[in-house]
Design a protein around this nucleic acid. Structure first.
Lengths: 197, 197
DNA sequence: ACTACAAAGGTGGCAGTGTCTACATTCGAG
DNA sequence: CTCGAATGTAGACACTGCCACCTTTGTAGT
């Protein structure tokens, strides 16, 4: 607890926390390793001990983002009720997360990640899709979803929600409130996934 | 036609062309004004005469992208046939464009544009949505689409396709061929948009 | 208890970038 | 023909990521 201990002690986590905050406020482009080091009262090369690259830091942020997103999705999917209701809850949770962390989402899905962390990110992204696939499989068992590979139907569902979030963040929704667009999207999606009458 | 004329003559368009090429190959992050100037045999500050900012160049690229995308969409929508078939053609055209120009798409939809050009970009994006809305209105007239504001249904349709393209580019589609995922997405979308039975 | 080593942080430097200001050249309208 | 505006040049500044080398600190092994 001296004034400025030589070893920071929690530099790695401190970097991640601060980077997360900067990312949310200024976007990925506004994230500078040197500025981060300054903010934490540490030399400009210190971050390199914990993150080889700037990209390594960004990848770590993306991993963190996927982890939290997946937790949120799992939480929404675990609620009681029929599969269809839980699917809409899942969709709302996803869009909620997306709209709350715009630059994080961009980081997570614009795949310019390093080769090594790319595998981990893909796996994490896949986990989120798996949650949706599980729900769809349940819906199929309950007879409220068309037959077919649940994983592929999950891809379609995910696409719709992710696209909607992107549209909203891009300001392309115009005067349409996101809530209403989301309701319609979920309605159309569920109707599309329902078994052919 | 001297060796190195003081005035380049077509610097602005040359910059755009070269920038487009670099963008496609190295992404937006790899686009440097100075490198561009070097490539064109011009001083490092010359580009500033045509693009105030680096961001201004990126915005111009986004505008160009939207213009071409809209042209492609309009072409697909103008084909003969029933509205539903033209809607799938529209979707295929969109995904085709998206997958062919990944960094361009990211530039177009990750809204960190300057205030002034933001309006133009929104308008261009809106134009693309308008094409879809028109087709949906036709489908409604033909009785193959549920009632409701065509613009809002277009938002949903656009979301699905855009999201699918993003998923594909992010490598989240895994072993699923894009074609198959696209077919399924279009099928689900059309079923979801169809009138309630 | 001492030593040796590895982890964590610090210093300095290099090449590259975007942007600003001042200056040079060219073009085109009057 | 002249003069101003458009276009391109030269130089500088602050900033960035990254690298090589040095210093401090904690710790493990004898």
């Amino acid at each position: 607890m001296t004034d400025s201990p030589y070893h920071h002690g929690h530099l790695r986590t401190a970097l991640l926390e601060r980077a997360e905050s900067v990312l949310a406020q200024s976007g990925a482009d506004g994230l500078s390793l040197r500025a981060l080091a300054r903010d934490l009262g540490v030399s400009h090369a210190a971050p390199a001990r914990h993150f080889r690259d700037r990209q390594a830091l960004l990848d770590a942020l993306a991993v963190s983002g996927f982890t939290r997103l997946n937790a949120a999705l799992r939480g929404a999917a675990a609620a009681p009720g029929p599969p269809s209701a839980r699917l809409t809850a899942l969709g709302r949770a996803y869009v909620e997360f997306a709209v709350t962390h715009p630059p994080l989402l961009a980081l997570m899905f614009t795949a310019k990640h390093a080769e090594d962390s790319s595998a981990e990110l893909r796996e994490l992204g896949h986990a989120g899709l798996g949650v949706a696939a599980g729900l769809i499989a349940e819906a199929q068992a309950a007879g409220t979803a068309r037959p077919g590979d649940p994983a592929r139907l999950a891809q379609v569902a995910f696409s719709t929600l992710h696209g909607l979030a992107t549209l909203s963040l891009g300001g392309l929704l115009d005067d349409t409130p996101l809530d209403e667009a989301l309701d319609l999207a979920l309605e159309v999606l569920l109707a599309g996934i329902a078994p052919a009458s």
